[in-house]
């Protein structure tokens, strides 16, 4: 089902070393990496970042899920790469297209990793540290936490209505849309009821009793977080340096697919060849 996509954004409870890194560090890191990845437009730097990403994904216990999600992404990425290589009107279109593909793969890995290892609590604590009001932080983290519950519940609702003889994929378009009603209403109603009951419960536990709320746990930076933050800042500085000073990369990093391997050219050669084959 399409709900599988939601799984990609789920917080994974299995603790991995990546889980112990402060969410603020992780956020900084992903900002720096994203900037770098988008700015750099050469194949070799991309490959370096990709190689650096692999151990992180491995230690985040995310390898299997990432590879699985790539299985779906790769066809899309390939299409994007081929179309760009064929139709981009600049020098070295194939190189640029490949960089684009690598960029997508890298970003999917980093963002997936962050989503898997940042808990809803981390999110709210981060927001609180940045001086957002507690109720806002709570709402965000609770919404995030209920994504998997919602997905599970939706499946049960589909099951329940199917058992009452509802046929979702039958009939013309109008009928199909109408058949969605018995699914959509309980989905919204349960979500609504759940939030009401939750609101009742927290109300009964002294919600908003005082402005000076305390916390049993709050985020504290450990030595490894400092390292992560320093590393992120270095990467970010590197990005700024490259972008502002407009320096050129060392020659060994600038590898371009040679003219004779341009996809467009290969394509034309193949085309000629096939034409010859038939004209004979």
């Amino acid at each position: 089902m399409s709900l599988k996509i939601l799984e990609y954004f789920n917080y994974l409870e299995h603790k991995s070393p990546m889980h112990y890194i402060d969410p603020r560090g992780k956020t900084l890191f992903i900002i720096a990496i994203t900037c770098l990845t988008i700015y750099l437009d050469q194949i070799i730097p991309m490959c370096i970042i990709l190689v650096a990403l692999l151990p992180l994904i491995y230690f985040g216990n995310f390898m299997k899920r990432w590879l699985k999600s790539l299985l779906f992404l790769i066809p899309v990425i390939l299409l994007v790469v081929i179309l760009n290589a064929l139709f981009l009107k600049i020098d070295y279109p194939t190189t640029i297209a490949i960089v684009l593909g690598l960029r997508l793969i890298i970003l999917s890995g980093f963002f997936g990793l962050i989503f898997q290892t940042v808990s809803p609590d981390d999110i709210s604590q981060t927001l609180i540290k940045f001086k957002f009001p507690y109720s806002f932080a709570w709402a965000i983290s609770t919404a995030y936490r209920f994504i998997p519950t919602l997905a599970k519940e939706t499946n049960i609702i589909i099951d329940a209505q199917k058992s009452r003889g509802l046929q979702i994929d039958r009939g013309n378009l109008f009928k199909r849309v109408r058949n969605m009603i018995p699914l959509l209403i309980p989905i919204f109603a349960t979500a609504l009821r759940r939030s009401w009951q939750l609101a009742e419960a927290i109300e009964s536990r002294g919600w908003n009793a005082t402005k000076n709320r305390t916390y049993l746990y709050s985020l504290k930076l450990k030595w490894w977080d400092i390292i992560v933050i320093l590393l992120s800042l270095t990467l970010f500085a590197l990005f700024l340096y490259l972008a502002i000073a407009d320096v050129s990369l060392p020659f060994w990093m600038v590898y371009k697919i040679p003219e004779r391997f341009e996809l467009k050219r290969l394509f034309l050669i193949a085309w000629e060849w096939i034409k010859n084959l038939f004209s004979k």
Binding site: E153, I156, I157, D159, A160, Q161, S163, R164, I181, P182, I185, P186, A189, T190, R193
Partner: peptide, 14 residues
């Protein structure tokens, strides 16, 4: 053939 009533009524009332 089978009538099936789920545990939580909220999952089917609409």
């Amino acid at each position: 053939i089978i009538g099936f009533s789920f545990q939580n009524p909220n999952h089917q009332l609409f």
